[in-house]
Write a protein that binds this DNA or RNA. Structure first.
Length: 586
RNA sequence: GCGCCUGUAGCUCAGUUGGAUAGAGUGUCAGUUUCCGAAGCUGAAGGUCACAGGUUCGACUCCUGUCAGGCGCGCCA
């Protein structure tokens, strides 16, 4: 519709210029906006004001000329000039009703478009370290990432959802060592658990499982384990050195194979919990990509060799540094530590190059906002490798600050004090949690009040939207109880009977849906869709209270039933994109 | 100190990429069912869009500065 308006305005303008009614102009992009106020018609165009300066004419004067030159169309009944020079268009009733048929014909596919033209997009999100269960902080990334993915795929992009598993590196070694020490305790050994180890209950569970399955296979004397290990922080030492020494001891005493078994027991246990949690949360992936596989395939080493070859790395203090300052980063970054170990950054360079090589047109990373300082160096590494930096988009998700009532909840994975995503889902429900997370724009800090979410979950706006859907279903239940039926063809025939203000508002709202989807997809803003659904639900509830759908006037009744079926379809489609269910009863 | 994000109603937040009289939810108050689900609907009250300049037909939106909050600045991941 907007496109059609744009066309007729454009032809009118070129006509005016060739008639010399207007001087030669550089035509800007013609903007068509939906009006906020019903009294301004359905669509508004500000072109007259934009041209006023160039043409050295009064905007209202331009608008008058333009209107006279507009061709006759069936879909517009009225054109007005308003305010400083807005041109307002009012849609004909026929054109407005057309949307109801369009919705019903497209069904579940209503809202889909070819905007993406089949271009491929990879979306990587959540990607939490498998050192513990997912907590509520990860929930926002999961809800946002999957909503963005669904939006893109609805808008015609080919989407590849991916979880990057950090199954290598020091944090995982700390986890493996934590598990082993808990295992030793489970086997009756007495020891002081390191202050920097993972203290969550899940570590005990994993340790006990190992004991059940493997017995005392991995038991070593505690005296040997702690022999010549640097002091821990509470004892006046350095907690980092302490845990690093313990890791070395674990690897040494257990040997490669046994250490790997303990390591994998922890990794697999936690990873399978994470997969389960995400799946239950309605978040599914095409691929789980292992960091370790990059290392084992030698990709990381290869990248380092390549960077050395083009003089992008230099040695200093026994470590190898990447010249990221040449690409605008604040300082150069270490990729190989002086102990020979590659850093997380090194594998991340390899990972991103690998993403590029897989040929995605666009690569999207969704990170917690605390990682924003990391963006320049990743982009720098891509530039250094001669890749197009614009293909990578990093979307940041601000933290949700947790509250219990008015009290802030402290969160720390290491200390094991947090609310898990699973607890949240079990108490609040998947639908409410997902909708709540996606209701705010991602770059907005968010307060997440657990008390509110748990105890007063009926206040969650998701129920308002779902209720609209359930209400439509309920009307149809009532219909069949009265021995009546809805006839789609008859209803579509009678759409011209829908003349009430409420009905027109709903039809206008329905026609906005495809625009909302596209806009939300292109801007990565699922909250637009959430707000749209609330608006649509409100229009429906208002309509419901103002008018009866099952009435004696047969044609009118059929037309109204047709309209609310379209509403139900759009709500169901929209909630589906957000990963929220649309129940028939509540 | 430098960088990124944010500042809109008592509270939680939108604001269609610069448009018309700044909007919802929640909370408060007042109404609403012999009628398809009251998890609903109707109305009232509530604002110096942090502050000060600038850009133009027009600014919550763009630019500069100030103030306030969050986050980040490791041979951690």
């Amino acid at each position: 519709m907007k496109e059609q308006l744009r066309q007729i305005i454009k032809t009118a303008l070129t006509q005016l210029i060739s008639q010399k009614s207007l001087p030669e102009l550089v035509l800007p992009e013609i903007q068509i906006d939906r009006t906020k106020d019903k009294s301004h018609g359905d669509f508004a165009c500000n072109i007259a004001m934009m041209l006023a300066r160039q043409a050295k004419m009064n905007p209202r004067q331009i608008a008058t000329l333009l209107i006279e030159e507009l061709p006759e169309t069936k879909f517009i009944t009225q054109v007005d000039i308003a305010g400083p020079g807005f041109i307002n268009f009012t849609l004909s009733a026929d054109a407005a009703q057309e949307i109801v048929k369009t919705v019903l014909q497209a069904g579940e596919q209503f809202g889909q478009s070819q905007l993406g033209a089949g271009k491929s997009v990879q979306v990587e999100f959540v990607s939490a370290n498998p050192t513990g269960p997912l907590h509520v902080g990860h929930g926002r990334g999961a809800a946002y990432g999957s909503a963005v993915s669904n939006l893109l795929s609805t808008a015609g992009f080919k989407v590849h959802r991916e979880y990057y598993v950090n199954d290598a590196g020091r944090q995982m070694d700390i986890l493996a060592t934590s598990v082993w020490l808990r295992y030793l305790e489970a086997c009756g050994e007495k020891l002081v658990f390191p202050s920097n180890g993972y203290k969550g209950d899940y570590v005990l569970t994993i340790a006990n499982d190992i004991k059940t399955e493997q017995g005392d296979t991995f038991v070593k004397a505690v005296a040997d384990v702690f022999e010549s290990v640097a002091a821990d922080e509470p004892a006046g030492g350095d907690k980092e050195q302490h845990i690093d020494d313990l890791i070395a001891k674990a690897q040494d005493l257990l040997g490669d194979e046994a250490y790997r078994q303990v390591f994998d027991a922890g990794l697999q246990s936690i990873l399978s919990e994470i997969r389960q949690d995400l799946s239950d949360f309605g978040t599914d992936y095409e691929e789980w990509f292992s960091e370790r596989s990059l290392m084992e395939m030698g990709v990381v080493d290869k990248v380092i060799t390549q960077l050395k070859a083009v003089d992008m790395l230099y040695e200093q203090g026994g470590a190898w540094w990447f010249r990221s300052t040449q690409f605008g980063d604040e300082k150069d970054r270490v990729v190989v530590r002086n102990n020979g170990q590659t850093t997380y950054f090194a594998s991340d360079i390899a990972y991103h190059l690998n993403k590029y090589q897989r040929g995605f047109d666009t690569v999207i990373d969704i990170w917690g906002s605390d990682h924003h300082g990391y963006i320049p160096r990743v982009k720098a590494s891509l530039a250094a490798a001669g890749e197009d930096v614009e293909r990578l988009k990093v979307l940041l998700v601000q933290f949700a600050v947790l509250y219990r009532g008015s009290e802030k909840v402290a969160m720390s994975t290491r200390s094991g004090q947090f609310v898990t995503l699973r607890e949240l889902r079990e108490e609040v429900g998947k639908d409410a949690a997902r909708f709540f997370y996606v209701l705010r724009s991602a770059d907005q800090h968010m307060d997440f009040d657990l008390e509110l979410a748990k105890s007063q979950s009926n206040d969650n706006p998701v129920y308002y939207v779902q209720y609209a859907h359930a209400r439509v279903c309920s009307v149809f239940r009532e219909l069949s109880e009265r021995g009546l039926a809805w006839d789609k063809a008859e209803g579509e025939q009678a759409l011209s009977r829908l003349t009430e203000e409420h009905e027109q508002a709903i039809m206008s709202m329905l026609s906005r849906y495809p625009e909302v989807i596209n806009s939300a997809a292109v801007n990565y803003t699922p909250h637009l869709l959430a707000h749209y659904l609330m608006d649509l639900a409100r229009d429906f509830h208002t309509y419901y209270n103002a008018h009866q759908f099952i009435v004696d006037d047969h044609g009118l009744s059929q037309a109204r039933l047709t309209l609310i079926t379209a509403v139900k379809q759009v709500i169901s489609n929209g909630l589906g994109v957000l990963g929220v269910s649309a129940p028939g009863t509540m």
